[in-house]
Amino acid sequence: MKSFLLVIFFCFSVSIVNYAQNNAVNTDEKLVYIASYTLSGLLTEIAQISLETSPVKTSTATLLKLKFTATTFSKFDNFFKVRDLYESYVNPKTLTPLLYKRDIVEGGFKRIEQYKFNHKTKTIDCFVHKFQKNGEFKENISVPNSGNTKDLIATIYNVRNLDFTKLKVGQTKSFHFIFDTAEKIITIKYLGKETINSNVGKKECYKMSLTLKNDNALKGTNDNLLWLSADVAKIPVLAKFKIAIGTGELKIKSATGLLN
């Protein structure tokens, strides 16, 4: 399940040039998805994923809070309960992260993480709280930030600021993100436009494939696909992925508060 949720992120994840201006993500928007997994060849709805944005005020600035929650449907709760909460506090203009928090409960697995992005010293201060059978463990690690490393949630939102009009079909982009205190590299390949029928209507989309360079969570070539709406908001409409234990997909259920 852990790798399944990681893949869900990968399906959304694409980064852009450092500090690009945000022109696609609105405050107070909410995107809801249904995550399905193939069980013996039959697609089964297992969880609801929601992505929300909201403004957060500190004494010196107004930041944008990006929230990702993954919740298994009640029928699966007794089987394998997932209650994951991911939060990223970003600069609303550039979507560059300042603070990233991860609180996951997946079956018997529990973990809390916090990452502070120090842009002056170019470091990421990580705090990890592990809950294991043999006790609780806390650790603090500081990892260097190459300059364009983001957290997963910020990366999900940054994808929407990609300028697809400047991308050629077949063109690839590699970028960095932090996961489990380690930096990972993902490569995307723009595959052109495609029209998708979804719960939010018939949408013309930008289609792309995703591959991980230093992780084996994603399997196959061109088997991990993402479709983003070809409009101002560029929301993820559909994602398909292949992992070691099968295939799955994410379908949009509803979208509110988007930029027009």
């Binding site: 500090y19 957060v56 005020k57 500190t58 004494s59 010196t60 600035a61 930041l63 809070k65 929230k67 929650t69 919740t71 209650r83 909460l85 939060e87 506090y89 600069n91 550039t94 560059t96 300042l98 603070l99 928090k101 609180d103 916090q114 502070k116 992005f117 120090n118 842009h119 002056k120």
Partner: peptide, 25 residues
């Protein structure tokens, strides 16, 4: 989902305190 909502509320309050000492890029 009550537990996750409570968790989120508490987490945001703690995050605001943390963010006071962090600077934007």
């Amino acid at each position: 989902t009550k537990n996750i909502q409570q968790k989120e509320q508490k987490s945001e309050e703690e995050a605001i305190e943390e963010l006071e000492v962090l600077e934007l890029e």
